[in-house]
Design a binder for these strands. Structure first.
Length: 588
RNA sequence: GGGGACGUAGUUAAGUCGGUCUAUAACGCCGGCCUGUCACGCCGGAGGCCGCGAGUUCAAGUCUCGUCGUCCCCGCCA
């Protein structure tokens, strides 16, 4: 016998259904039992519709409805009616309608819930353990239906721009640079391991060399590093690579994609092109390579003004090549306590110290003011344009440390004094990254992005300051979070060898680790470059959520465990034997 | 590896200076009543190893140490 489970979904019942008899199925979201009359909100992913059980319509259905409980799965059949005047609910999409039920079937029951679905705040570990209940909440359904739509518009965008979608291997080769790899033992090759990809980087370059011109993939990536609110061990990237392009081409495609996604999520248009800022400018002005531009507080350098200062810390810092940087917090008359707290915070962030100078009634007040000459005070006042109620915060340190610490302190000020305009989306390209950075740990220069990133200009026989070489690399930053990054790649073997020389990587080592790419570079590799966007982070930001876990269906805890499935777990000795693996941890 | 926060009925929270705490409330749950509710309402009831383990004390939900779990941050990570 054929049974109709439903004619349409709950949220899709419309005015034109009035008078029709429909069969609907869904979950009992809430039930309001008035004894003689019982209301229930029937819910599915499309929304909620009110169903009414009245003994005047069906005593049998009304009788059964008395036993309905939260989250029972039911099927009802009944006539769609306009609600009686005065009982409409304008707060819900189907609030003008209701279904008068003549027959009710309980398709499945539900035990009492471990937490209420409409509870504002529920312990996240409980939500993760019962993720299927958590995900029934309308807010979560909104997140994941949005996520689904973003996959679709992403594919639409690339498809209409001539890109080809590929899948690349999960079981791949361990790479030396970058994050720690997750590894998978190879049973067929005892003692050998695959690595899960940190990104499809080398494969997408190979695809360019293979002549596919424009590639994209919505790719899962794996990095065995510690977790954060915006970092999961497996996450999704929108991975892109293009041939015969330079920086501006990739950036333009990236902006087009973000515009598309932004529209899909917020239904609004954003202005492109996005602002661009050099890495150096970002570091000098905001002390970070991912500035949050939803508030101002730029850093201003005062090194020249205070280089002769009577205040020992300033003088000594400048003499030893350091800098003096300041931030002005305008028109917030801070108490002594606020200022003391600010000093403590700065120290906790890693600063050696923090000087404050407050302007009131036209004069500068500060513990160090007596060490400053009138000329110095006037020069500072003029440079910073101070008014009454302004506080200048000053750090003196080596350039990198002063920038970095002041950058962190800037974020503190932004939060503490609520300067962040929360409704804004401030996109920003950070460009002209240094090609190299010095690794204290390894005592050598390492690639800031990765070793296949193209330098700006010719680096053949380069002998100057290695840190001054710029890369054709770019990051996309949104509200202080990095949501994408990429580069133009080196496409000629001679340049790649030059790069390895700078990195002090021996040719044999390079061949052993990524010889397949090097060999490919020698067989007609076209100029190419690309970018990858953090899919989860983009969603998190656009939906104004605080955690990447909220946009991932089944996320891991900070210890990397899955509370739903209990992963990771021990495996049987037999499995270990097959893999020729012995652990050094005793079973507990 | 390090720093910090939290852990009390099924859930969310309160619990002051260690002492009427026999641990409180709301929601949920159970029973009853209710024909226009929509977070329905009203009456009644059950429900607790105060994360776990030591210690201090006449006395511990409360103080100390350890441990487990979750979260935030640094390191790590692009």
């Amino acid at each position: 016998m054929e049974v109709t489970l439903r004619d349409k979904q709950c949220g899709l019942v419309k005015d034109e259904d009035i008078g029709k008899t429909l069969t609907l199925s869904g979950w009992v979201f809430r039930r309001r039992d008035h004894g003689g009359l019982i209301f229930a909100d029937l819910r599915d992913v499309t929304g909620i519709v009110q169903v009414v059980f009245s003994p005047e319509i069906s005593t049998e259905a009304h009788g059964k409805a008395g036993d309905l409980k939260q989250e029972y799965v039911i099927r009802v059949t009944g006539k769609v009616k306009k609600r009686p005047e005065g009982t409409e609910n304008p707060g819900m999409a189907t609030g003008m309608l209701e279904v008068l039920v003549d027959s009710l079937d309980v398709l499945n029951t539900c035990k009492p819930l471990p937490f209420q679905l409409d509870e504002e705040e529920t312990n996240e570990s409980l939500r993760l353990k019962y993720r299927y209940l958590d995900m029934r909440r309308p807010e979560m359904q909104k997140i994941f239906t949005t996520r689904s739509r973003v996959y679709k518009v992403t594919r639409d965008y690339f498809e209409s721009n001539g890109f080809f979608e590929f899948e690349t291997p999960f079981f791949t080769k361990n790479t030396p640079e970058g994050a720690r790899d997750f590894v998978v033992p190879s049973r067929l090759n005892p003692g050998m391991f695959y690595a899960l990809p940190q990104s499809p980087q080398l494969f997408k370059q190979i695809l360019m060399i293979a002549g596919f011109d424009k590639y994209f993939q919505i790719a899962r990536c794996f990095r065995d590093e510690d977790l954060r609110a915006d970092r999961q061990p497996e996450f999704t990237q929108i991975d892109v690579e293009m041939s015969f392009v330079d920086v501006d081409d990739v950036i333009a495609v990236g902006e087009g994609l973000i515009k598309h996604i932004y529209k899909a999520v917020t239904d609004e248009d954003i202005q492109t092109p996005f602002m661009r800022m050099t890495y150096e400018n970002a570091m000098e002005t905001y002390g970070t390579d991912k500035p949050d531009l939803r508030f101002d507080l730029p850093m201003v350098e005062l090194t020249d003004i205070f280089k002769e200062a009577g205040f020992g810390v300033f003088k000594k810092t400048v003499e030893t090549g350091g800098v003096i940087k300041s931030i002005v917090l305008r028109n917030k008359t801070l108490s002594r306590k606020d200022l003391d707290t600010a000093v403590d915070v700065a120290k906790e962030l890693g600063a050696g110290g923090l000087i404050w100078i407050r302007k009131e009634k036209g004069t500068l007040q500060s513990p160090i003011v007596k060490y400053l000459s009138d000329d110095e005070k006037m020069a500072m006042d003029k440079t910073l344009g101070l008014s009454d109620g302004d506080v200048t915060f000053i750090m003196a340190d080596k350039r990198d440390r002063a920038n970095e610490n002041m950058g962190k302190f800037r974020l503190y000020l932004g939060k503490r004094f609520e300067l962040i305009r929360k409704n804004e989306f401030k996109f920003l390209w950070v460009v002209d990254f240094p090609l190299l950075e010095y690794s204290e740990e390894e005592k050598r220069y390492v690639a800031r992005h990765h070793p296949f990133t193209s330098p700006q200009g010719n680096i053949k026989n380069f002998s100057g300051d290695y840190l001054s070489i710029k890369a054709k690399a770019y990051d996309l930053v949104l509200n202080g979070v990095e949501i994408g990054g990429g580069s133009i790649r080196i496409f000629r073997m001679d340049n790649q060898l030059e790069m390895f020389r700078l990195l002090n990587i021996k040719e044999e080592e390079a061949n052993e680790k990524f010889g397949f790419l090097l060999e490919a570079l020698e067989m007609g590799a076209p100029p190419h470059g690309g970018i990858a966007f953090g899919f989860d982070r983009i969603l998190m930001m656009l939906l104004k959520l605080d955690s990447i876990r909220d946009v991932i269906p089944f996320p891991k805890t900070q210890k990397g465990t899955c509370l739903l499935t209990g992963a990771p777990s021990r495996i049987a000795q037999k499995q270990l034997n097959e893999l020729k693996i012995r652990t050094t941890v005793e079973p507990t």
